[in-house]
Every structure is written in C-alpha cells, then in structure tokens.
C-alpha cells in the first residue's frame, strides 16, 4: 500500500523539493502551507507521516504536534520535524511535544528518505 505523507511548510522553496522527492520515492503527497491547514489536512486525509516545519505562521510545528498527540484519533500519526531551529533546546522541545524524529536543516535528501522509510517500516 502507498503511504500518504503530509508536507507542512510555509516555504515553497523546500516544499517543491520535498514534494518531488517523496513522489519520486512512491509516496502519496499532501501539502499544507501553515499550522492550521496542516491540522485540517491530517484530520481529513489521515496521512501516516507528517514532515513538519517548526516555524510556520499562525500555529507553529510545536503547536501542531501537541494537538496531534492530544487527539486520540490522530495520535498515531508519525511526525518528523524538519527545521532550521538547531539548538539543543529546540530539539528537546520538539521531541518533548511528541515528534518521533527531528532533522535540522540543512539535511541530505538521502538521509531524509532513509529516515522516512525507517519510520514507516517500524510502524
């Protein structure tokens, strides 16, 4: 079965690459441009995994993650945080609010693909 992945990021410059990358790897890709849209899309489309950017207008990635974990129905969604916030405290917070993994920009797309595959396999 094809996994469904949501890319939640407000920066089109990364979205375009991620979208291409994921589609090419055979995933079904959804896009959200801010935190609220991400939540709505997850509720509606139930993706298995979210590539979640921390710095988004309105609701941040931290907020989105927290909301997912608070909701029984969405609790199972895998969250991979992708962010430019690279301080130890940020990573701690990301994992603290419930992210399954955390990758700091810049990252290699190969590593990202491997990570996504690993997370989905372990599910």
């Amino acid at each position: 079965m094809t996994h469904r992945i949501l890319i939640a990021d407000d920066e089109p410059n990364i979205v375009v690459s991620l979208e291409y990358l994921m589609k090419r790897a055979g995933y079904e890709v959804l896009i959200a441009r801010d935190g609220q849209e991400a939540i709505d899309t997850i509720r509606r489309e139930r993706p298995q995994l979210v590539l979640l950017d921390v710095m988004m207008p309105g609701k941040t990635g931290f907020d989105v993650c927290q909301e997912l974990r608070a909701d029984e129905a969405l609790n199972g969604t895998l969250v991979l945080m992708l962010t430019a916030k690279g301080r130890a405290t940020d990573i701690e917070k990301g994992l603290g609010v419930g992210a399954d993994a955390y990758m700091t920009k810049p990252f290699s797309t190969k590593d990202l693909l491997a990570k996504v595959a690993e997370m989905l396999a372990a599910r």
Partner: peptide
C-alpha cells in the same frame, strides 16, 4: 541569521540534490 541561513541551506541542498536526479 543562523536560522535563516540554515533554512536557506536546507532549501538549497534539497534543490541541488533534486537537480542531480537523472530523470
């Protein structure tokens, strides 16, 4: 500056890696 650069580098790296895709 650090975060901005990191994000931009992330975007760049991803884009450059996509550009390297043969197909």
């Amino acid at each position: 500056f650090t975060e901005g650069t990191r994000a931009a580098l992330g975007n760049l790296q991803a884009a450059v890696e996509m550009l390297e895709m043969p197909d």
